[in-house]
Amino acid sequence: MPAQDEHGLEVAMGRMLQIGVTIAALVVLFGGVLYLKLSPSPRFDYQRFHGSPTSNENIHMLLSGVSHFDSQSLIVVGILLLIATPICRVIFGVVGFTLLRDRLYAIVSTVVLLILLFSLFPGR
């Protein structure tokens, strides 16, 4: 396999990660500014663990929150984009190694992708 193509895949992965993090951080920042402008009170109690799932459980609730510029929903979307970034990198691996005709590593990347998907949707 030509080393050049392989380095091309690496550079593409690196750039993709950089873009993903930048977009995610900007969304978190935007949500954060709105969050501080409205300064919800009383402050969430971080000292005791409440154990309620993050308000992203319901995708409809999240989307409706985003459409109303709800600051916390926007921050959650930013966090989800952040989590999606390395997952996209693994998808890049599956596609890239397939294109490079490296069957072994196309399979290895697919296994990693399946573990990640399983972790995101447990019991589904």
Binding site: L17, A25, V28, L29, G31, G32, Y35, P40, R43, F44, Y46, H50, G51, S52, P53, T54, S55, N56, E57, S71, Q72, I75, V76, G78, I79, L82, I83, T85, P86, I87, R89, V90, V112, I115, L116, S119, L120, F121, P122
Partner: peptide, 28 residues
């Protein structure tokens, strides 16, 4: 590290370990 952490993130979210108001200043 990013891929490794992403594998626990889904479980953390569903358990409510990730709260927006705290995660926001920490991430940035």
């Amino acid at each position: 590290i990013g891929v490794t952490a992403a594998a626990s993130a889904g479980i953390y979210l569903s358990r409510g370990y990730i709260v927006p108001g705290l995660a926001m200043p920490v991430i940035l």
